[in-house]
Computed example of a mutant assay.
Amino acid sequence: MSTRFSFTARQCGLKGSTACSAASTSIASNLSSLSSFSSCGDLESMSFVTQRRYSDEFHSEEQGLERFFEACASRGREGSAVEAMDKGSVSANSRGVFGDSALHYAAHSGNVTGLKCLVAHGADVNARNHLQVTPLGKAVVEGQLAAVRYLLSAGADIEAADDVSGTPLMAAARRSRTDVAQVLLDAGARVDGTDSFGNTALHLAAAEGHLSMLALLLKRGAAARRANARGQTPADIAVASWTDNLTKDKMLHMLRDAGDEDGGARESPEA
């Protein structure tokens, strides 16, 4: 079909992308097409076919990688991912367009079996994507508790900060993932760790109005009067962020009680 198309296109005087656009995608790998265009000196069409061939090969490889990522993320499909890694056709540390590894995909969906298969094949448990997010960060944001537990047991950096949410505990505080925060704190996460603006998880929980998260962090010793880089305490953040008086009053009551227990002194941000 490709050879006949080449002849017909040549007879009609079509060249380049105009001639090739109506062809089957098989033209990209059919050397007879190049031969036909070459015989009539159609360099433009030869160039198009050559570029299309490499483009198709690229997309084929990209689609194969996407299928690998999907298999790692999907329960019951891990076997095909393991087979691909065992054959050497794909690496456990292969990356997608935005720098996500297969571990990121499995963590996002909470597929612990997929995570275990990848780690067993040498996947980097602390791999970072283009926004510096680790698989643990992905699992935290999605509230994938079992994945969080497994990644921590596999050596994930509990304080790995990214460009989106800060540390895993901060990511949990932003989204009121109280159960995830409990696991992180039990595993040794710093309750008063700060981001680039000097905010702690308590500041972030106050900004979002997450009462259960606020209560957990205060119970675990978060400094209620710690000021951020702008000199704002969590109570200041609560006042600035909320017009809902009921939520705001509850937060202020909790923070002031905890602050009184701390001695009532405003703390400077960490150096």
Rank of each mutant, 00 (worst) to 15 (best):
T3A: 10
T3Y: 11
S6K: 04
S6Q: 07
R10V: 07
R10L: 02
Q11K: 15
G13E: 05
L14P: 04
S17L: 06
A23W: 15
T25S: 12
S26N: 13
N30Y: 06
N30C: 09
L31H: 14
S32W: 04
S39Y: 09
G41Q: 08
S45M: 03
S45L: 03
V49W: 12
Q51W: 05
R53W: 10
D56M: 07
E57Q: 14
F58R: 02
F58P: 01
H59E: 04
F69I: 02
E70L: 02
E70H: 02
A71G: 07
A73T: 06
S74R: 14
S74L: 01
R75Q: 09
G76L: 00
G76Q: 11
G79T: 08
A81E: 03
M85G: 10
D86M: 05
D86V: 05
V90T: 07
A92N: 09
S94V: 01
R95D: 01
V97R: 14
S101L: 01
A102D: 03
Y105M: 07
S109P: 00
R128E: 12
R128Y: 06
Q132T: 09
Q132F: 04
V133R: 15
T134G: 10
G137V: 03
A139I: 05
G143R: 07
Q144P: 01
Q144W: 02
Q144T: 03
V148Y: 12
L152N: 11
L152H: 14
I158L: 14
A160F: 06
A161F: 03
V164W: 10
T167Y: 06
L169F: 08
R174Y: 11
R175Q: 08
R175F: 05
R177T: 02
Q182I: 00
L184Y: 13
L185C: 08
L185S: 10
D186W: 08
A187L: 02
A187M: 02
G188I: 05
G188D: 11
A189M: 04
A189Q: 11
V191L: 05
D192N: 15
T194A: 11
G198A: 09
H203V: 02
L217C: 07
K219N: 10
R220E: 11
R220Y: 05
R220P: 05
A224F: 05
R225A: 07
R230V: 00
Q232H: 14
Q232A: 04
D236M: 01
A240E: 14
T243S: 13
L246E: 15
L246K: 14
M251P: 09
L255Q: 15
G259H: 09
D260R: 14
E261T: 08
G264D: 11
E267Y: 08
S268G: 07
E270T: 09
